[in-house]
């Protein structure tokens, strides 16, 4: 099938087991622990399988925390961030690496600078700016901040993808009389599909897991996102392990469902989709 078939001498099966263990082991552990009693969770000798199954942790989570509110806030922020990021990054990548407008080198360098800035440095001045434009304590403000971090990354990510689309295609399109807009949307964009998929995944997950800015710029409990809700469970003086495990499971679950349902669009499907153009 691929060049890697030549590597069959390398025990691929062993590597698969290893990667499965590394990636899924801790997650397995969290999931089964979420179904244990608080006593069993912290037992000195860990039990690989719950001795008594209980959904007590989950029902406590739903009763004592506004989980559904956190969930819908997180979904709003993640979706908003994703849509805006993809739009901004595609536009920027196309302008910089395809149209190569005068000064693109410099602008690309500027975009790069975005990654050198330690996020902590920006917290206080950014708070003032968001406050001035009325976006403090609002999900829109959080989306805006997320996008400022995800869009430059995705622009860079798309660079490789956009450049691997042969430029001859543009020229052929131009000969056919297609304008720049049409060339971008109809010809080049579909060929970049794998890159777009990655950008979607990246920005969604970034927004889904973002913690530092969400604690700083969202003050109202009704607007908190899942990581903040989870961090609150950990608590200052005490850790309620059962709640933490249940909270973690519920935080992973929505993205897992998303990946199961839409995974083929993200990865495999988009690649085939691109080929049909």
């Amino acid at each position: 099938m691929t060049w890697s078939s030549g590597l069959r001498r390398v025990p691929a099966g062993l590597t698969m087991v290893l990667i499965t263990l590394i990636a899924l082991g801790p997650i397995y552990w969290v999931v089964v622990s979420a179904f244990k009693t608080p006593q069993e969770i912290i037992r000195p000798t860990p039990t690989l399988w719950p001795q008594t199954w209980t959904t007590h942790n989950f029902s406590r989570l739903l009763e004592t925390t506004p989980y559904t509110t956190y969930l819908s806030n997180s979904l709003l922020v993640a979706l908003g961030t994703t849509v805006l990021t993809v739009v901004l990054a595609v536009c920027a990548a196309y302008g910089l690496y395809r149209l190569e407008v005068p000064g693109s080198g410099m602008i690309a360098g500027l975009i790069l600078v975005a990654f050198m800035i330690p996020g902590t440095l920006l917290i206080v001045p950014l708070y003032g700016i968001l406050s001035d434009i009325g976006l403090i304590n609002s999900l829109a403000g959080l989306i805006l901040v997320n996008v400022a971090f995800t869009a430059p990354f995705c622009t860079w990510l798309l660079r490789g993808f956009i450049m691997s689309v042969p430029k001859e295609i543009d020229e052929a399109a131009a000969i056919d009389g297609a304008g720049p807009v049409r060339t971008m949307f109809q010809i080049v964009l579909p060929l970049m599909a794998p890159g777009l998929a990655t950008a979607v995944v990246y920005s969604f997950v970034f927004a889904w897991t973002e913690y530092v800015y969400a604690t700083q710029f969202i003050l109202d409990d009704r607007l908190h996102t899942l990581p903040i809700g989870l961090s609150a469970i950990v608590g200052q003086y005490t850790i309620d392990w059962g709640l933490v495990m249940a909270g973690t499971v519920f935080t992973i679950l929505p993205t897992l469902i998303l990946f199961i349902v839409a995974g083929r669009y993200f990865v495999g499907g988009l690649i085939t989709g691109a080929n049909k153009t």
Binding site: I27, V30, L230, I239, L256
Partner: peptide
Amino acid sequence: RVWVVLPWVIPTVAVAVI
């Protein structure tokens, strides 16, 4: 292709605790 992303979609708060 579906599950390998799981470690990455967990909020860092949870990663640290786990």
